[in-house]
Write a protein that binds this DNA or RNA. Structure first.
Lengths: 144, 144
DNA sequence: CATTGCGTTAGAGCGCGCTCTAACACCTAG
DNA sequence: CTAGGTGTTAGAGCGCGCTCTAACGCAATG
């Protein structure tokens, strides 16, 4: 088997068949080859490309930027430019990951604080419900 | 200064004034106190809550879920439930981070491969432009 | 033969999270 | 007294990324 149906590619890539067709329509994929019955037959290369697209999306690249990238690939040249695009994206992903990790740490602190208070409360009377005040935590964008 | 204007809170939290008003409208914040001129005066607690909201959003919590959380806080009780919600969210964030990191590693590999090929090309003739095939990389959802 | 299932197309629709607008109110500076 | 800046409200609008629909084709099955 050297080519795949759309539902096979959907399953393998995690994208829906709808999305695969849509990606093709908007130029993220070159026109995929059709069989004699008019149905798409994805090549191995198509599949790999789809998987790459999914990687880019999963890391938050915009569809518009994937289109630019696809356009560069399609036009054959501009390898350096393509790599710049990828590396630029890489930087953004790193930033975004760092940001999320920072926020996660803050949430962790909050959960811990809460759990601690909860066990104290278990041994004592009402915790005076000083809630609404809620978040004694470090900011993502820096507070005060 | 024990209270803040909307633009101050906007700057400190990273959310726009528009968004702050909208968050209040949809119940993510309790009604913020107004000064004699009808303008919002955010308390320290308000600010901290806004910052928490921003943390939750940054880590990808849906507005709908933040509303549920806010509702729990508003109703005073349900601390355990609240913590469950946070811990559940924590798990999702961890998953999402792992996924993104995996995709990032794949991109890194691709960039490296590309750069290697590029330097080879520099020393040799045309690289036979076997492109379009593009992505020889591991899948996010597992391939084949 | 009719049904079932999978595919095709172009285009409409949707959920999300803002973001902007219009019309108005107030305060301060020049 | 005007003009500018900052705020208020309710509601409309928007960009994104799908996701679904309608109408149809084709092949295999009972």
């Amino acid at each position: 088997m050297t080519s795949w149906t759309i539902s096979q590619v959907a399953e393998k890539s995690g994208l829906s068949a709808h999305t695969l067709r849509w990606y093709e329509r908007i130029g993220l994929l070159d026109r995929v080859e059709r069989g004699p019955d008019g149905r798409r037959r994805y090549s191995e290369a198509d599949l790999e490309w789809v998987v790459l697209l999914n990687n880019l999306r999963t890391t938050g690249m915009r569809v518009r930027d994937m289109q630019r990238y696809a356009e560069l690939v399609r036009s054959g040249g501009g390898e350096a430019e393509r790599m710049d695009l990828l590396e630029q994206h890489r930087e953004l992903v790193l930033q975004s990951l760092a940001q999320q990790e920072a926020c996660l740490r803050v949430l962790d602190r909050k959960i811990k604080t809460y759990r601690r208070r909860q066990s104290e409360t278990q041994a004592g009377p009402e915790p005076a419900s000083t809630e609404g005040a809620a978040a004694e935590c470090a900011p993502p964008t820096l507070v005060t």
